[in-house]
């Protein structure tokens, strides 16, 4: 605890420049103050005080998970400021924040992020579309499964990043190469999960739909597709992870714009702060994509008790 005094103080002063650290710390301070205040509270206000204490405790509880990351950040900042950590190895958090502000103002950060996002989504749309279509086809039509599935299972086992040399020969180092790699990467998880999702739709429900006179089209849209949807969305979440990973590798190899280009360019000039910023941008985009899928799951699978608010969820 003897360390926490000085490091916190440093974090505070440096954080002022970053503009983010103090903002997240403020509630913690008020929480602590509220508690102290309660301890000194008069007897007449005991009910109010206990409410305040409960509030302070809940606040402290909700902030507790942030304590360790903040402490690490503070130690990191201190180590960099005191010269234990060379900025050529790892930049101080404050420097990363400054780099963030600089690249945000000159527009390079946003334009690079939008280029990378565009590539990722294009690849996802193409690869995901193909994977989904093949999954549906093989799931509902036995001859297609016989003809295609084992081939696809073999192809699936080829690590798609291993074919980068070939891809460069085919497409050069242009946009097509990156989009192709992403598309190949995302197609398989979506294919597999769509296929298995459709295969695992309750056969009792399909029999019911037949007895109750549903046409094949209605059977597909009302029974098969909704039944497969949870699995398809799991596939989508896998695919999103692969999508960003593939893009990072592809962009790092060669590009003239995008986050990968930004970080590789910064490396040339030993700008470790920009490199770390690029890493953070990737992380943030990945997290954003995952949250988005979760939101879609919550909406599309509202019928499932696991996704209902207050339900015993896995998500």
């Amino acid at each position: 605890m003897s360390l926490s005094g000085p490091t916190e103080a440093i974090a505070f002063t440096q954080g002022a420049a970053a503009g983010t650290v103090p903002a997240s710390r403020v509630p913690a301070v008020t929480g602590a103050q509220a508690e102290r205040h309660d301890a000194a509270g008069a007897a007449g206000r005991s009910r109010l005080a206990s409410t305040g204490r409960a509030l302070g405790k809940s606040l402290a509880k909700s902030l507790a998970p942030w304590a360790l990351p903040l402490a690490i950040l503070a130690v990191w900042q201190a180590a960099a400021s005191l010269g234990f950590l060379s900025s050529r190895v790892l930049p101080a958090p404050g420097d990363v924040a400054i780099a963030f502000w600089r690249t945000l103002r000159d527009g390079t950060l946003l334009s690079n992020i939008s280029v990378s996002t565009g590539r990722a989504l294009t690849g996802l749309a193409i690869g995901g579309g193909i994977g989904f279509a093949l999954g549906v086809l093989n799931g509902v039509w036995k001859p297609a499964e016989t003809a295609l599935d084992s081939t696809l299972q073999m192809l699936r086992n080829v690590p798609h990043l291993a074919i980068i040399p070939l891809v460069i020969l085919w497409f050069g180092i242009d946009e097509e190469a990156k989009i192709f790699l992403v598309a190949v990467g995302v197609a398989f998880p979506i294919y597999l999960n769509t296929y298995h999702g459709i295969r695992n739709v309750d056969s009792g429900l399909i029999e019911m739909a037949r007895v109750y006179g549903l046409s094949p089209a209605a059977l597909f849209t009302r029974i098969v597709l909704p039944g497969a949807l949870p699995s398809v969305l799991v596939g989508l979440r896998y695919a999103l992870g692969i999508m960003w990973l593939t893009l990072i590798v592809a962009e790092t190899i060669s590009s003239t714009e995008g986050i990968g280009y930004m970080t590789m360019n910064a490396r040339e000039f030993l700008q470790t702060d920009v490199v770390v910023l690029g890493v953070l941008a990737y992380a943030l985009l990945g997290k954003l994509a995952d949250s988005l899928t979760r939101a879609i799951e919550q909406r599309a699978l509202a019928w499932n008790p696991a996704y209902q608010p207050g339900g015993k969820g896995v998500a």
Partner: peptide, 9 residues
Amino acid sequence: QDARLAPWQ
């Protein structure tokens, strides 16, 4: 024997 309701409807 079981109701066979589509849970998503």
